[in-house]
Every structure is written in C-alpha cells, then in structure tokens.
Design a binder for these strands. Structure first.
Lengths: 213, 213
DNA sequence: TCCAAAATACGCATTTTGGGTGATGCGGCA
DNA sequence: TGCCGCATCACCCAAAATGCGTATTTTGGA
C-alpha cells in the first residue's frame, strides 16, 4: 500500500501446467512476484523456512507431504507467512483440516483468475478469502445436529448435566444447588435413562455432542 | 435462474435511512424485489412466518427482539428462508452467535452496494457470503492459538485420555490397548498430575478445552 | 553403553459413582 | 378428584475411580 512493494509469493503445486499458469497470472498482475515454484513440499521446505514469502499458494494433493501437513508445520514454527489453499477438494475433511492447520484462505481451482488474485490480496491484507460454497460448509459446522431427537431434559436436569460436564462432583453440585447429593444422584440417574448413558462422560457426549476431539 | 423469477426479500432494519436506501438498491437491481420493510422483529414476525421470503436482510441491533434471537427462532421452526446479517457489529460475540443461530451470511454495513447485491445472490445460490475480515475471525476459531502451555502428554497418555473422553472405563481401555487396568490407572494418574486435574471430566476439559458447552 | 523417560504392573485405603428400590410433596390438568 | 410429571431425599450394595507408594521392563538417545 505505502510503497510499490511487490507481494512475494511461492507456489507449491505438482501439476506443471497449473503451476505455470498460476505463475504467469501472478507475475502479469504487476504487484505480485512469484519467487518460487515447487512441485512438492520437500523441494520448497528449506527455502521457505529460510526466506518466508508473504504468501504461499498451496495445493493439498501433493506427492510426499501434503499441503495441510506442511501448513501445520509452518504455523507451528510461528512463521508468519499466509497460506492460501487452492485445491480441487471441497469435502469437509480437507476443508476443516486445512483451516485447523492454520490456512488463511481456501479457494477452489475452479475459481476464475481474477478471483484468485483478489484472494491473494485479501489474505495479505488480513482478510480470509474463502470460497462461498466452502464458507457454507464452514457455517454448518456451527450448527451441526438437529439434536431435538434426544429426550429433552428438565430445567433441573440441564443445570446438573451442565455442571457435570464442567467436572464437578455430585457433592459439589449439591452444594452449589443447595440440595442433597442424593437428589443430584437421582437427577443424574434420570438423565442416564433419558440419554441411555451409564457414565458421566457418556451422558455429556450424548447431550452436548461428541465434542471437537 | 430458470425463469425470470424475482428474489423476494424482506428487510428488518430500524434505521429508517438505511432501510430506505437498501430497499431502493434492491428494487433497482431488477431481479430482486423487496416485499417488506420493517423496523423491528415484532412488526415482521407474523408476515414472515406466514409468507417466508427467499432472503431476510437483517440487522442485529434492533428495538425489542434482536436479529440473532429472531434468526434462531426462524431456524428452529425449520423455515428455509436464508438470513443475511448486515450490521455494524464485528465482534466475536455477535458473529459467532449469529452463525450459530443459523445465519447464512454475515456482511458489514460498510460494504459497498454491489457487494451487498452480490451477497444476496450468493446466499440464495447456496453459498455463504461472509465479509473477509469476518471470515478471518471465524478462522481463528479453528486455531485456538496457544495450547502449548499445557504439559505435553506422551503417546500412551494421549491414547488414554482420548478414550477417556469418549466415555470408556479403565477396564475397557485396558482391553482395547492390551494392557493391565492398573497401567491405565497409572497413566491416568500421570495425566492428572500433568494437567492438575482430579477427575476424568476435569482432565478432558483441560486437555481438549472446555468444549463448546 | 549408560541414563532417563516412558510404559508396564501390584497393593491397600478411601471416595465417588452407578443400580435398585422406595417415598414425599407440589402443581397442572382431564 | 385423581393421575402424572417434576423435584426432593434416603438407604443398601457393588463397581468404578481416585490417592499414594513401590517396582520392573522397555525404549530412545546422548
């Protein structure tokens, strides 16, 4: 923004044709310069750790180490390079793994050229370019199940399972709620029968969902 | 797409000027028709439940019921209307609550007109228009940073706490891992000491994070 | 090769849970 | 009025989990 500094980008993509097309697209843009073009993580690793570019345009399906694993490795080393995943994969597995690994954006190879340029600018500016179809999948992550199928718990039971999930013991819950520990036990047993659980952990998992583990 | 069907949209926004500007913008687009313009959820509720539009353009800060709560209400009734949140709020709290409530998109009022039109088309086409700055915050949700503060667990300990978190009993874990239940106990004790926990639920919460509860 | 960490295992005492059974009071509702 | 869901509490017994100590074997590196 301030100066006519060029954005330094490294491409990691094993499809020769695509890699070349990208490089040309980027270099032709004027303010972006492609400082490296590798067909595998192994080929790119050293130079990237030594001279981190501003952005890495990375594929997921690569020979040897995959792009997601490399993304994780880079972020674990606290390298500030932004990573833009550009791939054909649009399944939950790959998307979430990439985002969890620390990818700063996720677009599809089918995206038009100008969208990719825009994505690169966006990611460097601190935004997160995410394909709208991908974004939709990310959203569903926030409201997973329509878990109204589970037997509804009463107010009291809800209060208790909440505390159980936080790690409180029956005795502690009893004190917090000013009731007898026996009553807590009774409520928990009712919860178990409703959720078909036999242990606290089971009940918590069934009620709140398996959790992000 | 198939026919020249107009996209039916309802606006819920309490700022008169903004509401009027939006309505004009939408109607001028040609293929979008604003079928309602309300300054509160209360005013819009009945008509929306009776004749759900394709998309609702909703503010968050409204007099009476807020947009997020209404979003939740709509989704809980399984109404298929898409909800596009357009607000000035860009804090985690509002963003995540809106997404969890079932919003299909989240843009800022500062967005240029054409971006809003594009967002509406996107949301109706099944995509999720999310402001790039907002998307970045969503991404950080996937990377809770730190985590290295916690004492690292050994492979064996990790295996065990994973199973503990799934609700297995020591005896069951022992069988699964072909080791003695006593060994499982020992590992768990070591985990407790590392995580400073005293119960399985505590250990699980400290290791995996309090979870989405 | 030698050390330290990790993984394995037992014993004993105590606390916490889970399963069974039963009981009381309260408030809504047909 | 009587039934039912909900919340409350109690007592018995067994299983599971927890606390503390100790010890051996395996493994991975310096």
């Amino acid at each position: 923004m301030t100066v006519a500094t060029q954005l330094r980008i490294v491409i990691i993509e094993d499809d020769r044709d695509i890699a070349i097309a990208w490089e040309k697209l980027l270099n032709d843009s004027g303010h972006i310069i492609c400082t490296g073009n590798y067909n595998s993580v192994e080929a790119a690793r050293n130079i990237i750790f030594r001279y981190p570019p501003d952005v890495i345009l990375m594929d997921i399906g690569l020979p040897g180490m995959d792009g997601i694993t490399f993304t994780r490795e880079i972020k674990e080393k606290n390298i500030t390079t932004e990573i833009l995943i550009c791939t054909v994969f649009h399944d939950h597995e790959n998307i979430f793994n990439a985002l969890k690994a620390g990818a700063g954006g996720y677009i599809l190879k089918s995206a038009p050229p100008d969208e990719m340029l825009h994505a690169i600018e966006t990611i460097y500016a601190g935004g997160a370019p995410i394909d709208v179809q991908i974004a939709r999948k990310v959203l569903t992550y926030f409201r997973p199940e329509k878990k109204e199928l589970i037997a509804p718990l009463t107010r009291r039971e809800e209060e208790i399972i909440n505390r159980v999930s936080k790690g409180y013991r029956n005795k502690e819950i009893a004190e917090l709620m000013h009731i007898s520990a026996e009553t807590v036990r009774t409520h928990i047993r009712n919860i178990y029968s409703k959720l078909q659980a036999n242990t606290r952990m089971e009940a918590v998992n069934k009620y709140f969902g398996p959790g992000k583990r």
